[in-house]
Design a protein around this nucleic acid. Structure first.
Lengths: 138, 138
DNA sequence: TTAATTCCTATCATTTCTATAGGATTTATC
DNA sequence: GATAAATCCTATAGAAATGATAGGAATTAA
């Protein structure tokens, strides 16, 4: 399951997407509007910045904005920045590969292919740009 | 990511699938063959039994066996028994539905549909019977 | 100069995950 | 009937991850 960090991060990214580009949004504002604990948010924003998903403007009247065109940002990017791999087992992850400590031999692992298939179905959906995340119609 | 419990449980289920039906496999045997800590395994087996994936025979010469035809058992069942929901957010889970505490309104949640789609791609793959999990050919 | 803000390090609290301990109960076999 | 090999059960310990807070340094617009 997604961590709370990741959920907060997604809310933050979507908030910034909606926010007028010219005015940066302060952590305080985001915290209040999205009901995210302030200090926790600061720390998420730092991480999002490290991963080049948001940029910051320091000082009074400063704040945060998306670091790039929303058409180039996906939920997958946010998830990876917060929680790490999307794959359910590490030995099939593209970006976070690790061998499974329990596994004696990847070549003969009977579940590896299954989870690889799962991953390859998940990823393209999660990699859609956030511009495709319209509000559901009533 | 899958928990160690879930990985151990999957190994156990596959071990039992391969094991001759007439002789139950003891926790000790499984523990040794699959290198799973004995006491941890006992506790996993209990849980698998509660979820009616394995059955047990008590006493000397006792042990465990699959509770049903392997054609009726899937990795999804094992995962749900060990780790709970397969969905990445609780508000789209079929079996473990919960509203997201961060969410003000499901109807207007912008990521809900996306994660529902992800889930609906994952589930059919994970629900394939374990009889389809052949060893990969060289 | 002040106030608003990001930035940084550290720490705490809670929960979840992994694993172990110790023994009660059951049952096949000798 | 005794013994040994098992499952079964409750409890708890230890470790790691997660969620959250504290306190202040640095930056900058007004």
């Amino acid at each position: 399951m997604l961590s709370k960090r990741a959920k907060y991060a997604i809310k933050t990214i979507l908030f910034l997407q909606d926010h007028p580009e010219l005015v940066p949004a302060s952590a305080k504002l985001i915290s209040e509007k999205e009901t995210i604990p302030y200090k926790f948010l600061e720390n998420i924003l730092r991480d999002l910045k490290t991963h080049q998903l948001v940029k910051s403007i320091r000082g009074a009247e400063g704040g945060y904005a998306l670091a790039k065109d929303p058409a180039l940002i996906s939920i997958a990017q946010v998830m990876r920045a917060m929680d790490g791999p999307i794959a359910l087992i590490p030995c099939i992850s593209e970006r976070f590969y690790e061998s499974c400590p329990e596994c004696t031999d990847e070549a003969t692992c009977r579940i590896r292919k299954l989870f690889a298939e799962v991953r390859s179905e998940m990823v393209p959906i999660l990699e859609r740009p956030i511009t495709t995340l319209a509000l559901p119609k009533e």
